[in-house]
Design a protein around this nucleic acid. Structure first.
Length: 273
DNA sequence: CGCATTTCCTGGTAGC
DNA sequence: TGCTACCAGGAAATGC
């Protein structure tokens, strides 16, 4: 989405912003946007960060059902448009932020002031960046006793991993999602990081995963759903061993895994036992 | 501070 | 057909 938005938004001036959603913390500061130019389109984890010309940043998060569109959503989609942004340029355009379940955000903050976005303020390193290594990832995982699945979703050890890709990568790396994060071995941490990178790269190439609502800026459905190995397949056969995939709840989120391929290993006891 | 739980929200669907 | 109940989940708020 960032790649799609960059050439479309970069350098454009914001002429007007219309907030259709009720005022609230998810839509603050929008009145400051008109008159500012969009300097670029960046991203940290699942947050889109657009620096503006007067020292602000426009931040967008899609939540579960958010869509950013370059044309007015038609039919039932139209009733969930929360913000409309008028843009000036060689050919004036309009951006529509649509969000059925209202879990998304669309707000303006002072650049770098993420006090209203604590997850962004404490976000882990980018999965596809060079600064993250298997060693550093392993070290990060050792900082928590939470189940590895829940800790991944917290965005702290690594940025941008949501429920779908967490389940997919844990299956690929053959790690039980309930494994206490700090008990994930160095080798498994390396395999998990590689699996996360692979699944994210593959999904980006296919423009993401669409079940129902997700669309690209141009309105296309993402094509990665048919590549999923476990998510949405609870009760079906594991594609590796044929066992029936289990569905459970970890950290309040639906979790699908193979109890045969993803064994919960006994922690190696240290010192007295 | 760490971690578990609850909350927000709507559309789709199961069950009657 | 129409009703109720429940499920999906990213991140923040709340509780301990």
């Amino acid at each position: 989405m960032r790649r799609e938005l960059e050439p479309w938004l970069s350098g454009r001036q914001i002429i007007a912003v219309e907030r259709l959603a009720p005022a609230g913390p998810k839509y603050t500061g929008l009145e400051r946007a008109p008159g500012q130019r969009i300097e670029g389109v960046g991203r940290r984890g699942k947050f889109l960060i657009m620096p503006l010309s007067h020292g602000d940043e426009l931040i967008a998060h899609l939540g579960m059902t958010g869509v950013i569109s370059d044309s007015r959503p038609t039919g039932t989609g139209g009733k969930h448009v929360r913000v409309v942004v008028g843009l000036d340029g060689d050919d004036p355009r309009t951006l529509y932020f649509q969000d059925i379940r209202r879990f998304g955000r669309f707000l303006v903050v002072r650049a770098g002031d993420y006090r209203s976005l604590p997850t962004l303020a404490a976000l882990g390193p980018e999965p596809l960046g060079d600064e993250l290594s298997a060693g550093l990832f392993h070290k990060a995982l050792q900082r928590s006793a939470m189940p590895i699945k829940a800790y991944l979703l917290s965005q702290r050890p690594i940025a941008g991993v949501g429920n779908i890709y967490a389940d997919e990568a844990l299956w690929t790396a053959r790690i039980n999602p309930r494994t206490p994060s700090r008990e994930v071995s160095r080798a498994k941490a390396g395999a998990l990081l590689q699996a996360l990178r692979d699944v994210l790269q593959a999904s980006i190439l296919l423009q993401g995963t669409t079940f129902d609502d997700y669309r690209t800026v141009g309105g296309e459905a993402g094509a990665f759903a048919s590549s999923l190995k476990v998510y949405g397949r609870g009760g079906d056969a594991c594609l590796r061993c044929g066992s029936q995939l289990r569905k459970t709840v970890i950290g309040g989120r639906g979790t699908v895994y193979c109890s045969n391929c993803q064994r919960l290993r006994r922690a190696a006891s240290r010192g007295s036992s």
